[in-house]
Nucleic acid binder design. Sequence first.
DNA 1: GATTGATGCAGAATTTAATACGGCCATTAT
DNA 2: ATAATGGCCGTATTAAATTCTGCATCAATC
Lengths: 179, 179
Amino acid sequence: MDEETDGIPQNRPAARDVDATDRKILGVLVDDATVSYAELGDRVGLSPPAAHERVKRLRRSGAIRSTAAIIDPKAVRKPLLAFVHIDTKGWGKTPELMAISEHPEVEEIHSVAGDTCMLIKVRTEDTRALEGLLSRLYETPGVTSTRSYVVLSTYLERPVQPGVTTEWPTPRHMAKPLY
Amino acid sequence: MDEETDGIPQNRPAARDVDATDRKILGVLVDDATVSYAELGDRVGLSPPAAHERVKRLRRSGAIRSTAAIIDPKAVRKPLLAFVHIDTKGWGKTPELMAISEHPEVEEIHSVAGDTCMLIKVRTEDTRALEGLLSRLYETPGVTSTRSYVVLSTYLERPVQPGVTTEWPTPRHMAKPLY
DNA sequence: GATTGATGCAGAATTTAATACGGCCATTAT
DNA sequence: ATAATGGCCGTATTAAATTCTGCATCAATC
C-alpha cells in the first residue's frame, strides 16, 4: 500500500492544514510520544483508530518530522553548550555547511539577518573539547574566523510547541494591522 | 512496581555510565524512536528483551529524558526563528524566568558567560507576532531591554547526538593535556 | 433541492509488538 | 574456589498496533 514509488513528491494530497484536534495531538506527542493510541484518543476525544489515522496523516504531511529520543547531554558527556559565530568567505555555500555539519557536536546552523556570519550551536565535553572543535572548524576551507559564546546555565530547553489555541489571534493589546 | 515514592531521587542505582552499546541504542532512537525492540536489537546486536532492558535503564537513569514528536515549525505556523537578548535587572531570578518561559513561543533560555543578559530562542508566525512577543516580554517585571536577531535560514537543526565513538578521544591534532 | 461522492469516525477482528518470566553464562567479590 | 551479581537469550503471555467494515456528515454536482 506504499504509494511513494516516485522519487519526487509531486502530487501530495494537498496537505490539509493542521486543525485544533491535530494541535491537541501534537501537544500530547511532543510531551510524550510513547502513549498508546487508546490513551491519545482519550485525551483528544477520539477512538484509538481515529487517533492513529490522524497521527499517520501528520507524519505523512511532514507536520511530525520524526519521533525521537531526547537525550540528556550530560549522559553522553556533552555538558558544555556554546553558540559560535562563524565568518565564512562564501557566506552560506553548501560545501562549507556540509563540512561544518559533519561534526556531531554541531546541533544547529543558522544564517542571521544583519550579520555576515553563521550562528551555530555546539555541545562538547569541556572547554578543551570546545577549543579543539573550534580549531577544526577554523581549518575548514572558507572559514575565516570564529567567535564563541559559552552558556553558563540553561533554564529552559524544549521542542517546538504546537500552541493549542483556537485560532491564531493577533496579540490582545495590538491594533489591527494596517495592511 | 514504582519505586519513586520519595520526592528526592536519593538512592539512584549508581546510574552506571553509558557504554558503547548504549550509545548505539541512543543513536538509533534519536533518529527514530518508533522502531520495534526487535529491530533495535538487530541493529545493535542484542535480543529484543535485552534491548528493551537497556532502553528501560536509559529511561530510568535519565539518559533518555523523553520520547517526543519533532514538529515542523511551519506546520504549526511558526516559521520565523529568532534569538533574543534580554537584559534583566535581577539577571536570572526565578520569577522572571518563569514569566518568560510562560510564552509558548520561547524554546530556550540560556545565561551566557561574559554577558549580563539572557539569550533566548523564540519562534513566531511572522515579524508582527515577534514584535508582539517582544513587547509582552518587555512588559515582564525585571526586564529592562531586548535585542532580537532574526534567523534568515536554518541549514541544520538536530537533537543531541550521542556520538558513537569507541571512547572519547582528545582531538587528533592536539597534544596531551598538561594537567 | 435531492443525489452522489468523499472524508472522517467508531467498533470489531486480526496481526504484531511489548512485556514478564525462567534459565544460562560470565564476571566479580568473598 | 565459590557464591553472588548482572546481563543476556528463548519462550510465553499480555497489550497495543493495525486492518477492515459500516455509518454519518459535509460538499459538490446535477
